[in-house]
Design a protein around this nucleic acid. Structure first.
Lengths: 242, 242
DNA sequence: GAGTAGAGATTGTTCAACAATCCTGCAAGA
DNA sequence: TCTTGCAGGATTGTTGAACAATCTCTACTC
């Protein structure tokens, strides 16, 4: 389909913007970002455990980038909280503790609850289709649970919250959330029993989705608050049981 | 005073920790951070205006660092929101608009108000001396106002809020706040009338301090909420008048 | 066993070079 | 006139090598 076949100018411009966005997304080239992507996956999926040191020489060979570029990738990940620098000693996957759990959840609670509460005053009102990504994540989690893929359940649950925050249309909030969820993932890796950690929240996410689609925002905010408190307590218990 | 002249071991260790912290602060990775410091000041003080491009070659000569180190400094400032990268085009001082004002203030409001409200449930109770930095910033602002140094007033007012957030003892919150306030500073530079932008909040900051020192946290939270709404409106008005 | 000195390894920083991309101006064509 | 295509120059992206600064570990002394 060529551009000129589209009739209206508005539609054509929208289409152009879409293409531009795709290109920009694809064009996120930068060797550093590509290296960071690989490392990010290695960390969030648990191949690199908390406490592990990342050797520069070793990784330049594995990732096939220069030391300078690798260090730039390190910087990107430290900004996301997935790595920490120790001067003259190198970069490490951070080891978070109970205090970090409390800190992270405090932030999550205040931000997420505020987003949901804010949906009530929104003008124009939130279109229903904005909730579709939430439902998709719930269904992904449910499917993963059926085949005992609890890590995938955890991932889908987190994506649910990312999309929830996304409803606020705030790029800064999205940034902060990205970092919070990344750090949360680090915490999950010290947990021995992922099933009991993630399973209860599949149904609760579906419950949240339904409250939202019925525009019961205050109720949803209330439910989300206790939800997050329970989740925090679950993590703290898992920590103690370790 | 030499170490051995101090009698007690505890005191000596505390002293050593203090020195270690000072050294660490001084030794902060030097080159890249030193370059970042200079650039940060240039931006926040207005020498580098929003929209300006930062040339690598030019700055390597001015700052006397290598391109790699300079680029690391750029990364640091990008993380703080003081610079933005455009792939293959360079780094620029971002240009914020009304929408950014709304976005920033929404975050400020929810975070700061929550911090103040949370002080009520704090155990152990907040020691009075934790409020001293707040008072110091108020006095700094008052002194600066007497000599018409309105930029300094704005700085002190922002530091007031940084210390306010600091009462929550959350490193992540401190990070986020640092970025939010840095971005706010960018906004101030498009404002023609700094006096009417900053002057009213000197007294209001003092009022907040007094409510806090009387442990009237809910009242303080309420005052802070309207404070921030007024401040946001002031910025938006200034934007429109531009 | 505690403390110290030195060797080896790793990180911090710089430099110079080349590759990839963007911007500018100009000429050719509709 | 407006668009399109194409050099050419300028800027950024990436690399590899080199050296300095710092840490870690081992071996030694007491």
């Amino acid at each position: 389909m060529s551009i000129s076949q589209r009739g209206d100018d508005e539609g054509r411009q929208a289409w152009l913007r879409g293409v531009a966005a795709d290109v920009a997304r694809q064009d996120r080239s930068s060797s550093a970002e590509r290296a960071a992507d690989i490392l990010r996956r290695s960390i969030t999926e648990g191949a690199l455990r908390p406490g592990a040191q990342l050797s520069e020489i070793e990784l330049t060979e594995v990732l096939d980038v220069s030391r300078n570029t690798l260090r730039e990738a390190f910087r990107l990940l430290t900004h996301e909280g997935l790595l920490v620098y120790k001067l003259h000693r190198g970069v490490f996957v951070p080891e978070l503790d109970e205090q970090d759990v409390v800190d992270l959840y405090r932030l999550r609670r205040v931000l997420e609850v505020d987003v949901v509460r804010g949906l009530a005053d929104r003008v124009p009102e939130l279109p229903d289709e904005r909730l579709e990504p939430l439902l998709a994540e719930v269904e992904t989690a449910e499917a993963a649970a059926l085949t005992d893929r609890w890590a995938a359940v955890g991932t889908a649950n987190m994506q649910f919250h990312r999309h929830l925050i996304g409803l606020a249309d705030s790029s800064r909030l999205d940034d902060i959330t990205g970092r919070l969820l990344a750090e949360l993932r680090l915490l999950f890796h010290v947990i021995a029993t992922p099933q009991e950690l993630h399973e209860p929240y599949i149904a609760r996410n579906r419950g949240l989705f339904e409250l939202l689609s019925e525009h019961k925002y205050d109720e949803a905010a209330e439910a989300l608050d206790t939800y997050l408190r329970d989740s925090e307590q679950g993590l703290l218990d898992a920590f103690k049981a370790r």
